[in-house]
Nucleic acid binder design. Sequence first.
DNA 1: TTTGAGCGTAGAACGGTGTTCGACATCGGA
DNA 2: TCCGATGTCGAACACCGTTCTACGCTCAAA
Lengths: 254, 254
Amino acid sequence: MAEKNAKRGDDSRQRWIAQIAALENPPTPARSRKAPLTVERIVHTALELIEAEGFEAVTMRRVAAALQTGAASLYAHVRNKAALDDLLIGELCSHVMLPEPDPKQWQAQIMNVCGQLRDQFLRYPGIATAAMAATPTSLETLRINEGLLTLLLAGGAPPQFAAWAIDAAYLYVAAYSLEASLRSRPGNGEEGGDHDNEHEHDNDNDEIVERLRMLPTSLFPNTVAHARELSTGDGHERFDFTLGQLFRLPSSAE
Amino acid sequence: MAEKNAKRGDDSRQRWIAQIAALENPPTPARSRKAPLTVERIVHTALELIEAEGFEAVTMRRVAAALQTGAASLYAHVRNKAALDDLLIGELCSHVMLPEPDPKQWQAQIMNVCGQLRDQFLRYPGIATAAMAATPTSLETLRINEGLLTLLLAGGAPPQFAAWAIDAAYLYVAAYSLEASLRSRPGNGEEGGDHDNEHEHDNDNDEIVERLRMLPTSLFPNTVAHARELSTGDGHERFDFTLGQLFRLPSSAE
DNA sequence: TTTGAGCGTAGAACGGTGTTCGACATCGGA
DNA sequence: TCCGATGTCGAACACCGTTCTACGCTCAAA
């Protein structure tokens, strides 16, 4: 009986303690206590997390912790982790601005749009992983697709050419960004004491060239001979080159 | 008391049972009991697992289980899961055959090599994920790189062009294969009763076209107008198109 | 004003993952 | 014969996505 009483009293006792605690700190009063936890807040928090620690840090638990709650709470607003990923790349794509088509500059305009997408991917390291797994027919990606299609058609590209080139470009942008993210991120190295950013980059490149030159000439003659060409491509030269190739019109027009 | 005795005897009792069991089946005798667990066996088993259940099924525990052992045993032969992934794509790349360069057919030869690589990726669904994360300077990938470089140079491509085009091609092949794997794999749908493979494919394609046509014309005029071109590309037409664009020489030669 | 139903919150738990530790077995060579 | 090196592997740790469940809150009807 006593047990029963105690057990029964536990409940109201807890409430009593909670009430006292609530009395204790009325700062941040009124309604800040709610923090209503909307989809927007979740997506926003996840993006901040990616920017700071990379996409692999985006865990239901960690996103929830950043919102000062538990992982289970997120599932009231988002079906899956996969759905969250879709929302993330949707949000990301919504920041890409589509220009007014100008037939004289369609190539530059396309490079601009693809560059925006690439920069978004690079801003959130590793998110390109989600981009490749995401539903390819999300509304935001379709919006970019439509924009690129408009630019290409305005430039005089045949529809089938435009469709395939855009598809390939999207795939390439994601793959390029993913590789770039992995190359700079994964905390593997950065050994050695002092760093000067530019010198570090040069050293990296030089070391790759050197390693390639160490290969046996009998098996890798061309790799050794053109090691420099193979490992060059700082900045986004390779990126620009590839898109330039992808969007070369077939008929020698322009 | 009996319990205590049993517990103490457990150890030698187990050994006793093992001995009897060993007596029981001397078939596959001599030394088959060892099953020495080499790197080759691990890689081979992992590849079989991918072929049957996809890359996401490749878990240290599951690979070990397929080898009738525990996960910890693998770490005596492979540093990480990442290292295992590298070995897997290395093994995969080693099956790509490089042709003798023939300057007259360099384009077809390159398409052939890239097609081999693509088919390897498609044979092991999802392994392209590992290909994108893998060390880009593995010996096997360098071998393919050297082969492609040889073909392109034989075809008269400038070295810088060849280097960048090959890099882009590798990225694209991986991305294309990954998307193709994800599209057919992930068990999302396949609902509905009876399946005829060809009809199913047609239905899929038709449904995508239909969905695109449902978009508001005001926002997606070109997408609606060219829905068919956007969603076509069965077989590997898109693949061939993209590589064709990537390897078009700049100077209008050939 | 009271009640009750609904909804968002969140702790606990389940099954799975990569990886490490440490005791154990086995084998090659002195 | 013994002994050290090497390989094996159960147990455990920390983390993951996801589900279950109870709990608190809000708001509209009674």
